[in-house]
Each structure stands twice: as C-alpha cells, then as structure tokens.
Design a binder for these strands. Structure first.
Lengths: 178, 178
DNA sequence: CCGAGATACCTCGGATCCGATGTATTGAAC
DNA sequence: GTTCAATACATCGGATCCGAGGTATCTCGG
C-alpha cells in the first residue's frame, strides 16, 4: 500500500523523501499515519529493487535532498500493480482507496474498467457476517444496536460505492469501444 | 484488532482455537483473512499475558482441543480496550468495525456513548485529502473520475455513519440519564 | 548571537504478520 | 481398505511496521 503510493506519486514527477512523507500523509495519514521508520526503509528497499533511482541534490534545502526518480522498472511495477492488483487491494478499504487514487495512471480505459469490475465482484459477493447462508441478515436479528448499526452502515457504504462503480464501468466501456 | 476479536468472542463463553479461527474469519475474513500463523501465536501470546487460560479437552474431536477461557485479567483488558480505545481503532475502518461488533460487552451506556462520540470527532475532523485548507474540495477539481469517485464515496459513507452515530449517541444518552 | 523549530534523512529493536510446512486423528467416500 | 477431506494445533523464516532516537543544516525571532 505504501509502495503503491510511492510509485504513484513518483509517476507525477521526481521528488524527495520528505515531500513524499507529506503527500502520503495527506493521502492516508488521516486513517493510518505513516512513520519515518516505515517510509525511508521502503524507499531504500525500492531503490534496491531498481524501481527508483536516487540523486543527491545539494544546496537545495537545509538538509541535502535525495531526489527520487521513477525508473523504467518502477513504471512497469506500477502498471503491474494497477492492472493486476493484489486480492487484498480489492478487499481492504485502505488499500482499495489508495489504488483508486492512482488508477488514472493506467492509460487504457478497458484495463481501468476491468479493475473496477473486480472490485465490483468483491462487493457483490456476500460477506458471511451479514449473511446467514444465502439469506441476508435483517438488522433486528442482532440483539444490540451496535451490530445493527454495523450492518446498516456497511450496507449503505456498499450501496454508494456499487452505484458509482456501475456507472463508471459503463462510461469506461463506452470510451473503450466507440 | 485480532486480540480484541479473540477477547470479544471469549467473553461470550469458552471455545477452542479452531472455532475462533472460524468466528474471526466470519467477522473480518471477508476483508482481511486471518492466517493460522497469526491466530495461534496470538493465542499463545495472550495466554502468556494471563488474559486467557488453556485447558486440554481430550476425546472431544478428531484432534485434541485446547479450550480457551477468558481470565479475569482478560476481562479487564477487554473492558479497557473497549472503554478507552487505541486511536487507530477509531480511524481505521477495519479496526473500528471490529470494535463496534463487541461494544455490546460494555455494560455502561454512558461509556458506550463516549466511544461513539470519539469516533464522531474523528469523522468530523477534515481529512486533508478532501480539503484544501479549510475549504472542502469539489469533486470536479480532480481531473480524473477515480479521485472524483473516491471523494464522493468517502463523503457518502461518512454521511451514513454520522447519521447513525448521532442517533445512537442520543438514545444512549437518554438511557444513561433518565 | 543563540536557541528553537523546520527541513531532511537514517537506523535500530521489538512486535506483528503471513505463507509455508508439519503432525496427528477422525470420518466419509469410493 | 485406502485415499481424501476435515479437524486441530503448532512452528519457522522472511517481511513489514512502528516508535524512539540520532544527526546535521538552515532560518528566524529575540
């Protein structure tokens, strides 16, 4: 999730780690703050993998910046992760939202629609907490108001996203096959 | 999050690890599957902390079951985690939903309302991805449909939960102060 | 001129997680 | 009668994460 965000931000142009720290915080920090001890090792890791290159930029700021560029292998990695996302990226909200934030980096509308279709398939499959076998649970079946609320919130959020997904898949399909 | 689920399920009565595995999977497995290599070390860890006790139950099933009981220290730990949740439990959806699923174990309506109020405070504070300073972003300001969708989905889900939270806080307050 | 705060990067230890693998028994299927 | 699946628990290595701490420079106020 963090690596995807780094790749996605670098696709917009080179920056240094400290700026990435701010950008990542603005994207996901509200929900899950990112620590320096997570970010910088991730950068190091990704540089070792050949996805990004580091160039020292002296005199640009108080401390010497190490400007990060997206390498060709990094572009391929980003494309791969967007085009054929990890199953967790489709089920976990945090991951899915970060993926959505960078899905614009896929240039092919058909590929974008395919990703949305997969998320659609995940949302449409019944979650065992909300279903009793095939039968959808009724909120009143939970004795306490908290699980009732959990159920109704999950349904409402799912409905909102489903509507958007279906509409967007349609318009992407129209864009792909004129 | 896993530990909270284990404590919460054991509050309903003793069970063995394999049954917990199913229950946890039904609760959160749809979004984030739990691996045996996560569950059993967690049980071991929690037993070492004195939160749960293990008793062998021979002959009850194919393989010998180790029945888990919630110890008094475990009850206190559960109460503590529900009454004064970790900040991450209030911001991360996955964690918050599991907490909500067990909030019924707090017997005090005032304490329950207080927890909901904290979640309310989190949801009401502006997320930097959706705000430009103090000004809420308009969806059209994002050039691509994906970040537009992200924004509208986040707003819709937030609205749905906020409405439920406010109504439930009200009714809990009425229950606490008659 | 001096200290506080922002910029900028890095490392370390401890904790948790996951995937893979292992062991052993029971019951149903073929 | 033997293979297969389910039950039930456990361990291990590798990866990631977080919090805490460390280093160094620049700028601005007092």
């Amino acid at each position: 999730m963090l690596e995807l965000a780094i790749l996605g931000f670098l696709k917009d142009g080179p920056t240094h780690g400290y700026d990435l720290r701010t950008k990542v915080a603005a994207l996901t920090g509200h929900v899950r703050p990112v620590a320096d001890g997570t970010l910088y090792p991730a950068i190091k890791r990704m540089a070792a993998a050949g996805w990004i290159t580091r160039k020292d930029e002296p005199g640009a700021a108080a401390a010497p910046r190490r400007v990060l560029h997206l390498a060709e292998a990094g572009e391929r990695e980003l494309e791969r992760r967007l085009r054929d996302p990890d199953p967790l990226d489709l089920s976990d909200e945090n991951r899915w939202f970060t993926l959505l934030a960078f899905l614009r980096h896929l240039d092919d509308p058909a590929a974008q629609a395919e990703v949305l279709r997969r998320r659609l398939a995940f949302l449409e499959q019944p979650a065992s907490f909300f279903y009793d076998g095939d039968r959808p649970m009724r909120a009143e079946e939970f004795g306490d108001p908290f699980r009732q609320g959990l159920l109704s919130i999950a349904r409402a959020t799912s409905r909102a996203e489903l509507a958007w997904l279906r509409a967007t898949v349609d318009s992407l399909d129209r864009a792909a096959a004129p």
